[in-house]
């Protein structure tokens, strides 16, 4: 589903090059829910931006659904993101002038989907994230947890191959955090959508199927997928 190959990323500060990611390799299977764990400055956000096609790596390749996104131009990437990638932001990033339903529908607007289909899908997703009665409200009328639910519904509306969640519980209290993680886990199970959750919280990462740990730009923990581990055990045993 998602394959990261030999990713290296550097940036220039003055006359010096600083490398923030060193030879990163990992694979996420379809329908998996994995965590990218790391402390501040570990390179996890850079990795997320690279996987989402918002940045180009200095070296390496990133394959999503068989497409190398590193080779794509800006408009092709936009089209690819529209079809294959969903985003959940730490600060929700809803458009304040649009209603909850309109916010959820927005990715479909860029795909020229008809209003009636958009509406139907948006309402169904709001139902799934537990806020069907908030459709006509504006984001400013919602709590942080509710806004994050809207953000989750918006990320799902295009039925993407993979959803990137950047610190999805970073702005929430503990109780709401648990609710949001529970929603994500449930959606992963029911929709079989691949989730990559970037977090610095070990408690969040522990609830995912696998956790990739980054430290100072190095991938220090790359556990095999459950299926791979099983076949490996079978091979040796």
């Amino acid at each position: 589903m998602l394959r990261v190959e030999n990713i290296k990323h550097s940036f220039k500060t003055g006359n010096e090059w600083t490398t923030v990611l060193h030879d990163i390799n990992f694979t996420v299977n379809k329908g998996e829910m994995v965590a990218l764990l790391g402390s501040s400055g570990s390179g996890k956000s850079t990795m997320l931006n690279l996987m989402a096609g918002l940045m180009k790596p200095t070296e390496g390749h990133i394959y999503i659904a068989g497409h190398d996104i590193v080779q794509m131009g800006e408009n092709k990437l936009a089209e690819f993101r529209r079809k294959h990638i969903g985003f959940i932001f730490q600060a929700y990033e809803l458009i304040t002038s649009l209603t909850v339903r309109e916010n959820v529908e927005l990715p479909l607007v860029f795909q020229s989907v008809s209003p009636s289909v958009r509406k139907q899908k948006a309402l169904a997703l709001l139902e799934q994230v537990g806020i069907p009665d908030k459709a006509d409200l504006f984001p400013s009328q919602l709590s942080g947890g509710q806004q994050q639910r809207v953000s989750i519904a918006r990320s799902l509306i295009t039925e993407p191959s993979v959803i990137f969640a950047d610190e999805p519980t970073g702005n929430l209290d503990t109780r709401t955090e648990e609710e949001i993680i529970a929603i994500l886990l449930k959606l992963n199970q029911t929709l079989k959508t691949t989730f990559i959750v970037v977090t610095h919280e070990l408690e969040v990462a522990e609830q995912m199927q696998r956790t990739f740990s980054l430290r100072d730009g190095y991938l220090i923990n790359n556990p095999p997928a459950a299926a791979d581990a099983k076949s490996a055990e079978g091979g040796t045993g």
Binding site: A52, L54, E74, N75, A78, E79, R81, R82, K83, I85, F87, E93, I95, L106, P107, F110, Q111, R154, T158
Partner: peptide, 12 residues
Amino acid sequence: GIMKVLGANMGQ
């Protein structure tokens, strides 16, 4: 920026 992340291209 949000719109672009959600899939809006330059032309849109």
